[in-house]
Amino acid sequence: MDNVSTVEVAKEKLDRWLQNGTIIAGAKLPSERELEELLGVKRMTLRQALLNLESESKIFRKDRKGWFVALPRFIYNPKSSASFKLAALEQGREPSWDFIEKSLVSSYPAVVESLLEEGDSGELYRITGWGALDNHKVFYHETFINPRIAQGFIDKLGHDSFSHLWEEEYKKKIVTQRLAFRPIRMSGDVCKIIGGSVGTPAILVEKYRADSNKNIIQIDIEYWRFESVDFFINL
Protein backbone atom coordinates (compact mmCIF):
# COMPACT_ATOMS: atom_id res chain seq x y z
CA MET A 1 0.00 0.00 0.00
CA ASP A 2 1.24 3.53 -0.76
CA ASN A 3 2.59 5.43 2.18
CA VAL A 4 1.13 8.57 3.75
CA SER A 5 3.41 10.93 1.79
CA THR A 6 1.99 9.57 -1.47
CA VAL A 7 -1.52 10.22 -0.20
CA GLU A 8 -0.53 13.77 0.74
CA VAL A 9 0.96 14.41 -2.70
CA ALA A 10 -2.28 13.23 -4.36
CA LYS A 11 -4.38 15.28 -1.97
CA GLU A 12 -2.31 18.44 -2.52
CA LYS A 13 -2.58 18.11 -6.30
CA LEU A 14 -6.35 17.68 -6.09
CA ASP A 15 -6.52 20.61 -3.70
CA ARG A 16 -4.66 22.83 -6.17
CA TRP A 17 -7.18 21.93 -8.88
CA LEU A 18 -9.97 23.04 -6.53
CA GLN A 19 -8.26 26.28 -5.52
CA ASN A 20 -7.31 27.43 -9.02
CA GLY A 21 -10.77 26.69 -10.44
CA THR A 22 -9.75 23.79 -12.67
CA ILE A 23 -12.88 22.15 -11.24
CA ILE A 24 -15.47 24.74 -10.21
CA ALA A 25 -17.74 24.69 -7.16
CA GLY A 26 -20.63 22.28 -7.57
CA ALA A 27 -19.02 20.47 -10.50
CA LYS A 28 -18.47 16.73 -10.61
CA LEU A 29 -14.92 15.42 -10.30
CA PRO A 30 -13.67 12.95 -12.93
CA SER A 31 -14.38 9.32 -12.08
CA GLU A 32 -12.06 7.61 -9.63
CA ARG A 33 -10.55 5.57 -12.47
CA GLU A 34 -9.78 8.76 -14.41
CA LEU A 35 -8.32 10.39 -11.30
CA GLU A 36 -6.06 7.39 -10.73
CA GLU A 37 -4.63 7.87 -14.21
CA LEU A 38 -4.36 11.66 -13.96
CA LEU A 39 -2.58 11.48 -10.61
CA GLY A 40 -0.62 8.32 -11.29
CA VAL A 41 -1.69 6.67 -8.05
CA LYS A 42 -3.36 3.45 -6.94
CA ARG A 43 -6.99 3.19 -5.95
CA MET A 44 -6.41 3.02 -2.19
CA THR A 45 -4.13 6.08 -2.31
CA LEU A 46 -6.72 8.05 -4.27
CA ARG A 47 -9.56 7.00 -1.98
CA GLN A 48 -7.67 8.16 1.10
CA ALA A 49 -6.83 11.50 -0.55
CA LEU A 50 -10.51 12.00 -1.41
CA LEU A 51 -11.62 11.11 2.12
CA ASN A 52 -9.12 13.61 3.52
CA LEU A 53 -10.55 16.35 1.31
CA GLU A 54 -14.06 15.34 2.32
CA SER A 55 -13.13 15.66 6.01
CA GLU A 56 -11.99 19.22 5.25
CA SER A 57 -15.37 19.97 3.61
CA LYS A 58 -13.78 20.63 0.21
CA ILE A 59 -15.59 17.87 -1.67
CA PHE A 60 -18.64 15.69 -1.08
CA ARG A 61 -20.17 12.48 -2.35
CA LYS A 62 -23.53 11.85 -3.93
CA ASP A 63 -24.67 8.25 -3.81
CA ARG A 64 -24.07 6.50 -7.16
CA LYS A 65 -23.08 9.80 -8.78
CA GLY A 66 -19.50 10.31 -7.62
CA TRP A 67 -17.53 13.16 -6.04
CA PHE A 68 -18.38 16.86 -6.33
CA VAL A 69 -16.65 20.12 -5.41
CA ALA A 70 -18.22 21.67 -2.32
CA LEU A 71 -20.35 24.78 -2.80
CA PRO A 72 -19.88 27.88 -0.61
CA ARG A 73 -20.95 27.11 2.95
CA PHE A 74 -24.32 28.42 4.15
CA ILE A 75 -23.99 30.73 7.16
CA TYR A 76 -26.77 29.51 9.46
CA ASN A 77 -27.99 30.98 12.71
CA PRO A 78 -30.38 28.28 14.00
CA LYS A 79 -31.70 30.68 16.64
CA SER A 80 -32.79 33.29 14.12
CA SER A 81 -36.46 33.76 13.34
CA ALA A 82 -35.59 34.42 9.67
CA SER A 83 -36.75 31.68 7.32
CA PHE A 84 -34.34 29.45 5.43
CA LYS A 85 -35.51 31.13 2.22
CA LEU A 86 -34.77 34.66 3.44
CA ALA A 87 -31.39 33.73 4.93
CA ALA A 88 -30.34 32.02 1.72
CA LEU A 89 -31.42 34.92 -0.50
CA GLU A 90 -29.52 37.37 1.70
CA GLN A 91 -26.37 35.31 1.04
CA GLY A 92 -26.90 35.33 -2.71
CA ARG A 93 -27.96 31.69 -2.83
CA GLU A 94 -30.89 30.10 -4.63
CA PRO A 95 -33.04 28.26 -2.06
CA SER A 96 -35.59 25.55 -2.73
CA TRP A 97 -37.45 23.21 -0.42
CA ASP A 98 -40.36 20.81 -0.25
CA PHE A 99 -42.32 18.75 2.20
CA ILE A 100 -42.24 14.99 1.86
CA GLU A 101 -44.84 13.82 4.36
CA LYS A 102 -47.39 15.41 6.68
CA SER A 103 -49.05 12.91 8.99
CA LEU A 104 -50.35 12.08 12.46
CA VAL A 105 -48.10 9.49 14.11
CA SER A 106 -47.95 7.54 17.36
CA SER A 107 -44.32 6.42 16.92
CA TYR A 108 -41.56 9.03 17.22
CA PRO A 109 -38.12 9.70 18.79
CA ALA A 110 -38.00 9.93 22.57
CA VAL A 111 -36.69 13.51 22.38
CA VAL A 112 -40.06 14.80 21.17
CA GLU A 113 -42.12 13.25 23.96
CA SER A 114 -41.79 16.52 25.89
CA LEU A 115 -44.42 17.95 23.53
CA LEU A 116 -47.05 15.74 25.15
CA GLU A 117 -48.98 16.60 28.28
CA GLU A 118 -50.99 14.45 30.66
CA GLY A 119 -54.21 13.36 29.00
CA ASP A 120 -52.94 13.74 25.43
CA SER A 121 -53.70 10.95 22.96
CA GLY A 122 -50.02 10.21 22.43
CA GLU A 123 -50.15 11.23 18.77
CA LEU A 124 -48.11 14.01 17.20
CA TYR A 125 -48.03 15.73 13.85
CA ARG A 126 -44.90 14.75 11.91
CA ILE A 127 -43.77 16.82 8.96
CA THR A 128 -40.72 15.82 6.93
CA GLY A 129 -38.98 17.71 4.16
CA TRP A 130 -35.74 18.91 2.64
CA GLY A 131 -33.97 22.16 1.85
CA ALA A 132 -31.58 22.88 -1.03
CA LEU A 133 -29.15 25.59 -2.07
CA ASP A 134 -28.38 26.16 -5.74
CA ASN A 135 -30.21 22.91 -6.60
CA HIS A 136 -28.15 20.88 -4.13
CA LYS A 137 -30.01 19.34 -1.18
CA VAL A 138 -28.22 20.29 2.04
CA PHE A 139 -30.56 19.22 4.84
CA TYR A 140 -33.43 16.93 5.76
CA HIS A 141 -35.78 17.71 8.64
CA GLU A 142 -38.44 16.10 10.79
CA THR A 143 -40.76 18.48 12.65
CA PHE A 144 -43.11 17.43 15.45
CA ILE A 145 -46.11 19.39 16.79
CA ASN A 146 -48.82 18.53 19.31
CA PRO A 147 -52.17 18.48 17.44
CA ARG A 148 -53.99 19.57 20.60
CA ILE A 149 -52.11 22.88 20.52
CA ALA A 150 -52.36 23.42 16.77
CA GLN A 151 -55.37 21.54 15.48
CA GLY A 152 -55.28 21.03 11.71
CA PHE A 153 -51.68 22.29 11.36
CA ILE A 154 -50.68 19.81 8.66
CA ASP A 155 -53.77 20.63 6.59
CA LYS A 156 -53.13 24.39 6.74
CA LEU A 157 -49.37 24.34 6.21
CA GLY A 158 -49.32 24.44 2.42
CA HIS A 159 -45.93 25.72 1.26
CA ASP A 160 -45.59 28.43 3.93
CA SER A 161 -42.97 28.51 6.66
CA PHE A 162 -43.83 27.15 10.09
CA SER A 163 -43.33 30.55 11.72
CA HIS A 164 -45.70 32.23 9.27
CA LEU A 165 -48.46 29.69 9.95
CA TRP A 166 -48.01 29.92 13.74
CA GLU A 167 -48.37 33.70 13.62
CA GLU A 168 -51.14 34.01 11.03
CA GLU A 169 -53.35 31.05 11.97
CA TYR A 170 -52.63 30.39 15.65
CA LYS A 171 -51.56 33.88 16.78
CA LYS A 172 -48.37 32.57 18.33
CA LYS A 173 -44.93 34.07 17.85
CA ILE A 174 -42.42 31.27 18.36
CA VAL A 175 -38.80 31.55 19.42
CA THR A 176 -36.01 28.99 19.64
CA GLN A 177 -35.66 28.19 23.34
CA ARG A 178 -33.07 25.40 23.23
CA LEU A 179 -30.61 23.93 20.74
CA ALA A 180 -28.60 20.72 20.66
CA PHE A 181 -25.88 19.80 18.14
CA ARG A 182 -23.90 16.67 17.50
CA PRO A 183 -21.86 15.16 14.66
CA ILE A 184 -23.28 11.99 13.14
CA ARG A 185 -22.98 9.75 10.11
CA MET A 186 -25.98 9.81 7.79
CA SER A 187 -28.27 6.79 7.78
CA GLY A 188 -29.58 5.16 4.66
CA ASP A 189 -33.00 6.81 5.03
CA VAL A 190 -31.51 10.32 5.16
CA CYS A 191 -29.12 9.55 2.28
CA LYS A 192 -32.07 8.61 0.08
CA ILE A 193 -33.47 12.12 0.52
CA ILE A 194 -30.41 14.35 0.30
CA GLY A 195 -27.87 12.13 -1.43
CA GLY A 196 -24.54 10.93 -0.16
CA SER A 197 -23.48 7.47 0.89
CA VAL A 198 -24.33 5.73 4.14
CA GLY A 199 -21.90 7.04 6.72
CA THR A 200 -21.41 10.46 5.07
CA PRO A 201 -20.56 13.08 7.77
CA ALA A 202 -23.49 15.22 8.90
CA ILE A 203 -24.52 17.52 11.73
CA LEU A 204 -27.66 16.79 13.71
CA VAL A 205 -29.50 19.83 15.08
CA GLU A 206 -32.40 19.61 17.54
CA LYS A 207 -34.40 22.83 17.87
CA TYR A 208 -36.95 23.32 20.63
CA ARG A 209 -39.35 26.13 19.76
CA ALA A 210 -41.51 27.83 22.36
CA ASP A 211 -44.41 30.28 22.51
CA SER A 212 -44.44 33.55 24.46
CA ASN A 213 -45.16 31.62 27.69
CA LYS A 214 -42.01 29.52 27.16
CA ASN A 215 -44.03 26.38 26.42
CA ILE A 216 -42.32 24.07 23.89
CA ILE A 217 -44.76 23.71 21.01
CA GLN A 218 -42.54 22.49 18.15
CA ILE A 219 -39.41 20.35 17.91
CA ASP A 220 -37.31 20.20 14.75
CA ILE A 221 -34.71 17.52 14.06
CA GLU A 222 -32.43 18.58 11.20
CA TYR A 223 -29.71 16.63 9.41
CA TRP A 224 -27.24 18.95 7.63
CA ARG A 225 -24.57 17.85 5.19
CA PHE A 226 -21.24 18.42 6.92
CA GLU A 227 -19.61 20.39 4.10
CA SER A 228 -22.60 22.66 3.43
CA VAL A 229 -22.99 24.79 6.55
CA ASP A 230 -21.29 26.96 9.16
CA PHE A 231 -23.26 27.59 12.35
CA PHE A 232 -23.14 30.76 14.41
CA ILE A 233 -25.21 32.19 17.26
CA ASN A 234 -25.19 35.83 18.38
CA LEU A 235 -24.99 36.11 22.16
Rank of each mutant, 00 (worst) to 15 (best):
S81N: 10
I216H: 05
I193C: 02
N77E: 13
I184H: 04
H164I: 10
P95M: 02
W67H: 10
N213R: 14
G119R: 07
N20A: 01
G196C: 06
E227A: 05
Y208N: 03
K62I: 10
I145Y: 11
R182N: 14
A70K: 01
S106T: 12
E101Y: 06
R126Q: 12
W17D: 07
I184M: 06
V111Q: 08
K13V: 14
G40W: 01
P183T: 13
H141G: 13
N146L: 06
I233C: 03
F139V: 11
G152A: 11
I194G: 00
D230L: 09
R16V: 04
W130G: 02
Y108G: 10
D2V: 12
V205K: 12
N135W: 02
N213I: 09
S106K: 15
G188P: 02
H136S: 12
I233A: 02
S57A: 01
E12I: 11
I217K: 00
N234W: 15
N77K: 12
A88Q: 06
V4F: 06
I184Y: 06
Y208A: 01
V4C: 08
R225G: 05
K62T: 05
L14K: 01
W97T: 04
L124D: 08
A110L: 07
I219Q: 02
I233N: 00
D120V: 12
K28F: 10
F68Y: 03
I154A: 10
V205Y: 06
K137R: 04
V4Y: 09
A25K: 13
Y125M: 14
A202I: 11
S161Y: 04
R61P: 00
D134K: 09
D230Y: 14
E118C: 00
T143G: 05
Y140D: 01
L18G: 00
